[in-house]
């Protein structure tokens, strides 16, 4: 029996999430795993925007920032429970993406890149400057999600890293499932047509501004949810989360693994999250190695790690 890409991706992801903890020597590995999943969620959003629709964004950390601060400020300023605050953040991100997306997506290539970059910087600046509300550049504390306590009261006591590993893993699976479904939907087909050639897509009747805007809004929601999860598990958030460095990191993860496929991008998120942890023994040489690995992979596996590796395997098989 041949598995579809969709089922294969979900199956492999689920297996990895469930099976790897058997090899974890300590709770720290759960923490790193949870970070991989959180980045994976944000990067899955970029697959929809960049991989499917062919649009670049250097400002998606802005949406992560909105999601993070929503989950931080919702409970303190609006007396909302953290779970509802996450949803509020996602809704707010979608609304803002909808409003700024229309003019921004008219731009192409590097001009789109600088416009999204500017948007992200504006968000981080507001977060840093409105210190009366946001706590300023030094950041703000975030309330407990409460789910872990609930589980504990039901007799399931989990360490924080273990809980967040499981929770982010489930969210990632749901996110990947939705993204893969989108791929096969009419919108997904329209997006792919668009990625191939915008002119061709137009001639076959694709409403280009509408579908790119949809992709932008959806990817913003992914980033927002990822930001919320990060803030909730760190119990503290600073405006750095909306900074352009994180935006660039996200794009790099997607492209590094292969922005065209959900699995590739998540794999890229995994590698680039693990590398700095694995390279700590190099101490001062860490940055040097990180840069070198990025350059080498992009030279020798230019479509990204996963697509290039798959091609290699298939090429050999044929």
């Amino acid at each position: 029996m041949r598995l579809s890409t969709k089922s294969a991706t979900l199956l492999v992801l689920a297996l990895l999430i469930v099976a790897t903890p058997f090899f974890f020597p300590s709770a720290y590995y759960y923490r790193v795993g949870a970070l991989v999943f959180v980045n994976g969620i944000a990067v899955t959003g970029l697959v929809i925007l960049t991989g499917y629709a062919g649009q670049i964004s250097l400002g998606h950390a802005g949406f992560a920032g909105i999601g993070a601060y929503a989950s931080a400020l919702g409970p303190t300023h609006l007396s909302l429970p953290p779970s509802l605050s996450v949803l509020l953040g996602a809704a707010l991100s979608a609304l803002i993406a909808f409003l700024v997306g229309r003019p921004i997506l008219r731009l192409k290539g590097y001009y789109l890149a600088v416009a999204t970059l500017g948007f992200g910087i504006l968000v981080s600046m507001v977060l840093a400057n409105e210190s009366g509300i946001t706590g300023g550049p030094d950041g703000v504390q975030v309330a407990e999600l409460g789910l872990r306590d609930l589980l504990a009261s039901l007799g399931l006591k989990l360490k924080a890293p273990v809980f967040w590993y499981a929770f982010s893993g489930v969210v990632l699976l749901v996110g990947a499932w939705l993204a893969l479904n989108l791929y096969d939907s009419p919108t997904g087909r329209a997006l792919r047509a668009l990625h191939g050639s915008e002119v061709a897509a137009k001639t076959v009747g694709v409403d280009v501004p509408r579908v790119t805007l949809q992709a932008f809004v959806i990817s913003a929601v992914y980033a927002s949810v990822a930001g919320s999860l990060l803030a909730l598990q760190n119990r503290f958030v600073t405006p750095d989360i909306a900074g352009y460095m994180y935006s660039i990191e996200l794009v790099t993860m997607a492209v590094f693994g292969g922005a065209g496929s959900v699995f590739g991008a998540i794999f890229g998120a995994g590698i680039l999250t693990l590398l700095p942890q694995a390279l700590t023994f190099l101490a001062e040489y860490e940055q040097l190695m990180l840069g070198l690995i990025m350059v080498l992979v992009m030279i020798f596996m230019r479509e990204g790690l996963v697509p290039s590796a798959l091609r290699l395997i298939r090429g050999r098989g044929a």
Partner: peptide, 16 residues
């Protein structure tokens, strides 16, 4: 200087 990394390293110091 990244709070997110600091949290990860703190977890590593304590747990690992």
């Amino acid at each position: 200087g990244d709070p997110n990394k600091a949290r990860t390293f703190a977890t590593r110091l304590v747990e690992d």
